[in-house]
Amino acid sequence: MISIEHLTMKYLLIVAAALTLAACSGKTTEEPDADPLAAQAAPTADQITVTAEQRTAIGIQTGPAQISTVNDEIKANGVVDVPPQYMASVSVPIAGIVKTVPVLAGQQVPKGGTLATLQSLDYIQMQQDYLQAVSQLTFQQQELERQRTLNAEDVGARKRLQQAEAEFGSTRALVRSLDLKLRTLGTAMTALQQGQLSPVIRITSPVSGYVTTTNVHIGQQVSPTDILFDVINRDHMHLELKVYENDAFKVRKGQTILLNDAKLGAETVRGTVFLVGKAFQGEAHTITIHGHVSDERQEQRLIPGMYLNARILTGSRQATTLPEEAVVRKGQEGVIYVEVSPNTFKRIPVRIGSAEQGRVEITPLRPADLSKTVLKGAYPLEAELTKGEGEEE
C-alpha cells in the first residue's frame, strides 16, 4: 500500500519541476516588433482591426468627406509661340559678301537696327545705273519740250515728237524702278542724288526684339535665298496648345488655362483661351487652341519654343473630396478606408477624379458611409492589409 507521505513527496516533485520550467521560459526576452500592426488579428480581405496603441502609433485620424466645388478640366500640350507679325527671318535681296556682323544671338536690337553690312558689286552698279538714268531722263525731258514747241509752230515732224515722248516715258519708268530697288536696299537716296555712291548695304531688323539665330560670318558670300538672321519680339507671346478630338467640343473662348510646369517654378501661370481652331489637324485629330497669358510679369518667364503641359478649366461642379493623403492611388482608381466600428477599418474602392489644392475628387464604387473616413494613416493600413499578396509561394 502506498503511504500518504509517498504521495505528498511525489506531488511536491511535480510542482517543483513545473516551477523550474516556468523560470527557464521567463529568462527569454521577446524582441520588440517594429511594425505597429504586427500584433493585430489576421485581417480579412477588405477589413482590418488595430489596437488603441497601434492606432496612436500610426497616427490614424478620421473625419467626414467634404462636398467641394471642383473644376472640370482637360489636359493639353503645346509650345510658346509669337504671332507672325512679331517674328522675322532676315535676308537680303541682292548677292554680296558680308563685311561686318555687329550682333550676336540673344542680343536685343531695335527696329531698323543694323544686323550686318554687305559689300556688293551689283549694288554699286545699280547706283551707277540710277544716276545715268536720271541724267538721261533730264536730257530727254528737255528734248521732249523742244519737240512740243516745234510741233506747235508746225516746224517739227510729228514722228520726232512721238519718239521723244516714248524715250522719255521709258527712261522715267527705269528711274522709278531703280529708285524703288535702291530704297528697298536701304539706300540714302538724298546722298545718292548728290552723287555719293555707297559701297555697302546695311542689313537691318524689320522688328524690334531679340536675335535668335545668326547664320553669317565676315567674308561669307550670301545670296537672296539665304536666311541670315532670325529676330523675335517677345512682347506678345502666346500659347499654341493641342487638344484631342474627344475634348475639343468642351473648349470655349474665355476659359482659364493653367500651366503647372516645373520649368516655370512653383507659381501657377494663368492664361485665357483666345481662339479655338475650326478644323482638326494631323493623324492624331487635334485642334489648335490659341491662348494668352493674363499677367505680363508671368509672360516674361516664357521662352518661345518652350514645350508646355497645360490644363484648360471647362466648368465647375459639386463633388465629394478628400485630402490627397487619404486616397491610396492605383492609376485612375484607388482605395480609401472608413471606420466601421471602433478601431476596425474597411477598405472601399473609389474612382479618382479632379485634384486641386491638396484635395482629390472620389466616387465610391460601392455604397459606403463616409462620415468616418480615414484622413491620415490610409497608406499604412493598405500596406498591412495587402501584405504578402505579391509574394511568390
Score class of each variant (00 low, 15 high):
110 P>I: 10
176 R>E: 15
86 Y>W: 11
99 K>W: 02
335 V>E: 02
27 K>G: 03
215 N>E: 11
259 L>C: 05
384 E>F: 02
12 L>G: 03
167 E>L: 08
249 F>T: 09
143 E>M: 12
141 Q>Y: 11
215 N>H: 15
285 H>L: 08
110 P>V: 11
255 Q>L: 07
155 V>M: 07
12 L>S: 08
387 K>Y: 08
302 L>H: 03
268 T>H: 05
346 K>F: 00
180 L>F: 09
326 A>E: 01
172 R>M: 13
33 D>W: 04
132 Q>D: 15
157 A>P: 04
107 Q>P: 05
176 R>T: 15
134 V>S: 10
348 I>S: 05
7 L>W: 14
226 D>Y: 04
270 R>S: 13
221 Q>M: 07
90 V>F: 04
381 L>P: 04
218 I>E: 15
383 A>I: 10
15 V>F: 14
228 L>G: 02
22 A>S: 14
36 P>H: 09
67 I>G: 04
16 A>K: 02
46 D>N: 15
180 L>K: 14
320 T>W: 04
387 K>A: 15
49 T>G: 13
61 Q>H: 09
150 L>F: 05
365 L>Q: 15
130 Y>A: 04
28 T>W: 03
330 K>M: 09
156 G>N: 13
164 A>G: 08
70 V>W: 00
323 P>V: 04
194 Q>N: 14
242 K>P: 00
132 Q>E: 12
8 T>S: 11
311 R>W: 01
363 T>S: 09
140 Q>S: 12
249 F>Q: 11
79 V>N: 10
75 K>H: 13
40 Q>P: 00
333 E>Q: 15
197 L>K: 12
342 P>T: 13
150 L>P: 08
329 R>Y: 08
356 E>W: 03
180 L>N: 13
204 T>M: 07
115 L>W: 12
185 L>V: 05
102 P>Y: 09
57 A>L: 14
135 S>H: 05
122 D>S: 14
357 Q>F: 04
